[in-house]
Nucleic acid binder design. Structure first.
Lengths: 234, 234
DNA sequence: TCAAAAGTGTTGCATGTACACCCATGG
DNA sequence: CCATGGGTGTACATGCAACACTTTTGA
């Protein structure tokens, strides 16, 4: 922070800084959000995002990863800062600003038990319960940002297991953009980026014929980035 | 913020919350940034963004507008939150997170005296001095976001006077994207949005023939938004 | 053998890009 | 009358959208 204003303007007052996590996951081809039943007063029993105060000796990003780890048992999750919410009366108790961060997790990796211990539940994004405080707003903003970012970054892959099929990938983008896509055009597009590596295995869990598995090639993606790219899918 | 984690995790510690403003303006067809000579220790005399602590009874956005007003005398400036910077050691004095906000101002509107009182100076964006702390990073992030947002929102107009010519508008976009544009294609594009209103006046300050003045039509822009738009210029 | 999902090409249309000349005017 | 910046149209290339049938195989 900066102090260029005259000294008499420098009213220094500390406040609480929290971070709240908007956790997206993919389940049965649907985009879902993980919400928690709040256990402490005020507003105990209401649905909310998971969050925590940021500690004095903790980077913001570290705080986000800590919250996510405590809630899900996962580490090194893809996470991106959304924005901060700082209306003066947003928290009824005391002045507190919250830095919202959104996370994309692979539900397969997921320790289901930890979820239940926290009274957490996955909701489809078009069927969410009301959340406390300004958390509804955070979710709306996060969705918009997710859709925006998915246009220019391959973040969709963060939601899928390491090996995935093209139909799976297509379902994911259909879930993100709530829009049906043409399988021929979709394949043409994703293959044109040259960031998918075809494997010799097939996934037969959803059809008799089976669909080839692919994995994401990060090196090619780096090249693509440098040569001025447009990763627009959908 | 949220408290779903067990109580023993709830280490509540307050910290300072600041806001720093990345102020862009347009001058002689160049995109510029307003930076300030810091007047207080530590780092007195160094270049920095302008900022202030957020007060307990003040919304984040209000704090941003206050900082901008104190620094420039302007009110109701276009301002948008960028993101928060919260490395634990980003400020050498004490733990402090900063919410960066960027502003677009019309230099014409501008009270030049107030700038000088603050030891402020406009720099071209590709010729900036080193700034204190993480302010360089903030500027880079703000530039990226400005370019990104200018693609889908008509924020370019915020930098121009109410009445402007097409060549002025083109220069602005060339400054934002650091790229020359073809005047024929540029006109075709901006007119296709139907958000410019041609006036009967001409601006003769840059040529003998003079260029017609236009103004931005906010109603048509609202219609454009609703009908699913793509405001991509450049 | 058949149901169910995987996989594949072509064409028309729209949009972006490249490009060069005339216009209006003040000095 | 000429130098300066303002203003205009066309042809080509590229990318996107629409569209239907064949393949594989487990039950």
């Amino acid at each position: 922070m900066t102090q260029n204003t005259p000294d008499f303007y420098q009213v220094k007052e500390k406040m609480y800084v929290a971070t709240d996590c908007i956790i997206f996951g993919l389940h049965q081809g649907k985009l879902k959000l993980l919400v928690f039943k709040r256990k402490v007063e005020p507003l105990s029993g209401e649905w909310s995002l998971i969050g925590s105060f940021v500690r004095l000796d903790e980077d913001l990003e570290v705080a986000g990863q800590r919250v996510l780890h405590e809630a899900t048992g996962l580490e090194n999750v893809f996470m991106q800062q959304l924005k901060s919410y700082g209306k003066k009366d947003r928290d009824p108790g005391y002045r507190c600003i919250s830095v919202a961060q959104y996370a994309l997790i692979r539900i397969d990796d997921y320790n289901e038990q930890v979820v239940e211990e926290h009274g957490a539940k996955w909701f489809e994004i078009d069927d969410l319960p009301a959340l406390i405080l300004d958390h509804d707003l955070m979710v709306q903003d996060a969705l918009r940002q997710l859709r925006q970012n998915a246009r220019y970054q391959p973040i969709g892959f963060e939601l899928l297991p390491e090996k995935f099929t093209i139909p799976q990938l297509q379902l994911l983008y259909e879930a993100i953009y709530q829009k049906e896509l043409d399988p021929r055009n979709f394949r043409k597009k994703v293959f044109s980026f040259n960031v998918l590596e075809k494997l010799d295995e097939k996934d037969k869990s959803t059809s008799k014929r089976g669909a080839f598995l692919y994995k994401f090639n990060y090196e090619n993606y780096q090249k693509l980035l440098k040569s001025g790219y447009n990763f627009e899918i959908a």
